[in-house]
Amino acid sequence: RSRTAFTAQQLEALEKTFQKTHYPDVVMRERLAMCTNLPEARVQVWFKNRRAKFRK
């Protein structure tokens, strides 16, 4: 699988949600996936990586 390049709009939506909660539930992730045209699995991995970045 190749690396996913996120658009500015996708990142904005993801970051906005991350500010609200670092652990979105499956419903919220699926809604984000639909809004951003990304698979739910990519949204889940983005949050996992973003939490790791946040802890540093």
Rank of each mutant, 00 (worst) to 15 (best):
V27T: 11
T7N: 06
P39K: 10
T21P: 06
L14D: 01
N49E: 15
K48I: 11
E12A: 06
A41N: 11
Y23D: 06
L11E: 15
A13N: 00
A13G: 03
L11D: 10
W46E: 06
E40I: 09
A13Q: 10
T21S: 06
F54K: 09
F47M: 03
W46F: 00
M34N: 07
F47Y: 07
P24K: 08
S2K: 04
K53M: 11
L32R: 02
E40Y: 04
D25Y: 10
E12L: 05
L11G: 02
E30Y: 03
Q10K: 01
K16N: 11
A41P: 12
T36N: 05
Q19D: 10
F54W: 12
L32Q: 00
E30L: 06
W46I: 00
L11F: 06
K16M: 12
A33T: 07
L38Q: 04
L38R: 02
R51Q: 07
R50D: 01
C35N: 13
K20D: 05
A13D: 09
T36R: 02
R1Q: 15
P39C: 06
T4L: 12
R55S: 13
T7H: 00
K48D: 03
N49S: 11
L11W: 05
A13M: 12
C35K: 12
S2H: 12
S2G: 12
K53E: 14
L11N: 08
S2W: 03
A13P: 05
V26C: 14
H22M: 15
T17P: 07
F18W: 10
D25W: 03
A13S: 10
R31A: 10
T4R: 11
A52N: 00
L32A: 01
A13V: 15
D25C: 05
L11T: 14
T21K: 03
P39T: 15
C35P: 03
A41W: 15
N37W: 01
A5L: 10
L14I: 03
Q44A: 14
R50P: 02
F47S: 05
R3G: 15
K20S: 09
A8V: 11
E15A: 00
M34L: 13
A8L: 09
R42H: 14
K16T: 12
T7M: 06
C35E: 15
M28S: 09
Y23N: 07
V27P: 10
R3P: 12
E15Y: 10
T36A: 05
R51F: 03
M34A: 14
F47R: 00
F6M: 12
